[in-house]
Structures are given as C-alpha cells and as structure tokens.
C-alpha cells in the first residue's frame, strides 16, 4: 500500500501527524499546508504531535509552526506506539570509545593511540603507552605511560598495581617517590594543582570497609 506523504490519525490524547520521511521535505511541507487549508479550521484547537523517522529538530519545528498557523496546539507527549520504538533504538549510550589491547606489553613494544586505551595484561619495564586520553591497565604497570599526551589535563592513569612505573599526564611527570608501592586496590593517577596525585580506587567502589 503506497503511504501518503502526510496522514493524520486521531488518538485518545489528540491528533498524530505521520510523515513519510523517505520523501522530499519540501513536498511534505506543501502537502501538510494543503491538508490544513482543505480542512477549513476543522482541526482548530486540537492538540497534536508530529511523528516521522529521520526528520531533524528544525524540520519538526517548521512543521509544527505550520500547524500552529491553523490553530493547532503542539503537545509532544501524545504517544504513537510504532514510532516510539524506533526512537528508543536511536538512544546513544554515555561514555567514550577506547582501544582494547589484549596481552602483555614487553620491553620495546609500544602502543600509540588517539583516545583512551585499555590494556588487559601487564606493562613491562621498557614498554611504552602513549595516549591522548586516559589509560587503564588491568595488570601490573612497570613501564612508561603517557596519558593526555596532547595536553588533556583531565586524563587519568589507572592500574591494578604500580611498580617502578614512569607516569606522565599532559606532559607532567610523576616523581618516582610519590608513586605508591603497594595497594590492595587499583590506583588512579590524576592531575591536581599542576602535580600528579594518586588515590586508591576504593572510595568510589562499594567494597565494605575492612
């Protein structure tokens, strides 16, 4: 069945204006105007919502303005079940992408990456990680790690264990004496007041105090 450019459905909550967004937006606009014109004020005072896949926010408000001229009242809370499902899939998860490295970095091996890096393994002495974002090491770090390599001062370095590691964030190097030798919990290095400080991951986690 060929879909109409614009179809108007009545629901218990109000009118739902459905668009076939595979068509040209200008055609849709024209068609909507024509529909409103021909209704001769029949829809005046009715509440409505616009539904259509792949229409931008600006296009949506343009269409809503046309309807307003004919006395309709926009109310986006009117639900249309079929279209709503599509909207949910479009939801973007929070967070940033990262490069996952599986395995231990041995002496002489190097990872360079624009962004965050997660390493499942150890970093041995003489190995190096350079990232413009943060670095997470699911293992023992004994090598060189440079986070925020292009000046990102919010970058952090987190490791399960730090041993004689050489760490720097946004070009600021941690003094070797400040690096904690052992901890029961993962350690995070971050910049604070122009210096690298270390805190145990513990206070953020839900471990019971012991």
């Amino acid at each position: 069945m060929p879909r109409e450019l614009v179809s108007i459905k009545g629901t218990r909550e109000g009118l739902v204006i459905l668009l076939d967004s595979t068509r040209e937006f200008e055609d849709i606009k024209l068609h909507l105007k024509r529909k409103m014109e021909s209704s001769r004020g029949f829809f005046r005072g009715a509440r409505f919502a616009v539904y259509g896949q792949a229409i931008t926010g600006r296009q949506r408000s343009e269409l809503e303005n046309i309807c307003r001229q004919y006395g309709l009242i926009p109310s986006p809370e009117i639900s249309w079940p079929l279209e709503k499902k599509v909207e949910q899939i479009k939801t973007v998860l929070p967070g940033e992408p990262a490069r996952l490295v599986q395995g231990t970095l041995r002496s002489g091996q190097e990872i360079r990456h624009q962004g965050n890096v997660v390493i499942i393994g150890n970093i041995h002495p003489g190995a190096r990680v350079v990232a413009t974002g943060s670095v997470i090491i699911m293992g023992c770090c004994r090598g060189t790690v440079q986070a925020g390599a292009e000046g990102n001062t919010a970058a952090t370095i987190t490791a399960l264990k730090l041993q004689a590691a050489c760490l720097s964030i946004a070009g600021i190097t941690a003094s070797p004496a400040a690096i904690p030798r052992s901890s029961l919990f993962p350690i995070t290095a971050r910049l604070k007041g122009g210096r690298i400080i270390f805190d145990s991951y513990r206070h953020k986690a839900i471990y019971p105090a012991f």
Partner: peptide
C-alpha cells in the same frame, strides 16, 4: 632479564 623480555616480545 630486561633483554630476555624484549626477545620474548620479538
């Protein structure tokens, strides 16, 4: 030991 580590990587 450091050199051995490098060799193992290679």
């Amino acid at each position: 030991v450091r050199d051995a580590d490098r060799i193992i990587g290679l």
